[in-house]
Nucleic acid binder design. Structure first.
Length: 208
DNA sequence: ATTAGGATCAACT
DNA sequence: GTTGATCCTAATA
């Protein structure tokens, strides 16, 4: 399993660590496991695209907590997205899980996402990934590094450095010049790039 | 292949 | 009242 110390680093470093790792989620109807192939790093006060840019709210609270916990939030009135909290207690940071390959519990995954036209599409996109894993607001704050937790993070086959691609984050209108999206080259489950709203470009001030 | 609208919530102006 | 770390369906090219 991945440990809290592994994840208590800058979200950019945690992102590279999470590529190739697997997330296993138990529920009443069974267990689904996903190999993570696409992620995005989000920081805190210096990252205008982050939920934490303007401080703590009830929604983003767990991003301020200890690393290795699950941050689930509700978007667009009907979807959930999942993040792995990074950095230390008190300093906000997280890695958005954007896409994965279902490696076990395929039948359950298919049942949860009947609209998928192929297995590669099952967890292709952040909200799809949370649906396949059965994650909702109830799972917000879970410790992914606890062996007793219903949702856990495991080390997978390491992804070679030359298989990792980098680019701007999807769907964000600010800080488009910051390449904080990471994905595994060649995976059929990586989602398509889509630029966000039409606001001006804001540069992130590199911390220290 | 690309685009538009709707679903409908929390945070922000 | 507007805007999103989105996805699905339907319409247009």
């Amino acid at each position: 399993m991945l440990t809290r110390e592994d994840l208590a680093v800058d979200p950019v470093d945690a992102s590279k660590l999470l590529l190739g790792a697997t997330l296993r989620a138990d529920s009443a109807d069974g267990t689904v496991e996903v190999r993570i192939v696409e992620v995005e790093a989000y920081r805190g006060g210096d990252d205008p695209a982050s939920h934490c840019y303007r401080g703590k709210t009830p929604r983003n609270e767990v991003m301020f907590g200890p690393a290795g916990h699950l941050y689930v939030y509700f978007v667009y009135g009907m979807h959930f997205c999942a993040n792995v909290v990074s950095l230390t207690d008190g300093v906000p940071g997280a890695v958005l899980l954007r896409a994965g390959e279902v490696i076990s519990g395929l039948d359950i995954a298919r049942a949860r996402r009947p609209s998928s036209r192929s297995d590669a599409e099952l967890a292709k996109g952040p909200a799809r990934l949370t649906t396949v894993l059965g994650l909702k607001a109830d799972q917000n704050g879970l410790d992914l590094t606890d062996p007793a937790s219903p949702v856990r993070l495991y080390k997978g086959e390491p992804v070679q450095a030359d298989q990792v691609r980098v680019g701007p984050r999807v769907g964000v209108a600010v800080a488009i010049d910051v390449p904080w999206r990471f994905w595994v080259d060649g995976s059929k489950a990586v989602s398509a790039y889509r630029r966000g709203g039409k606001r001006g470009i804001v540069r992130v001030v590199p911390s220290q």
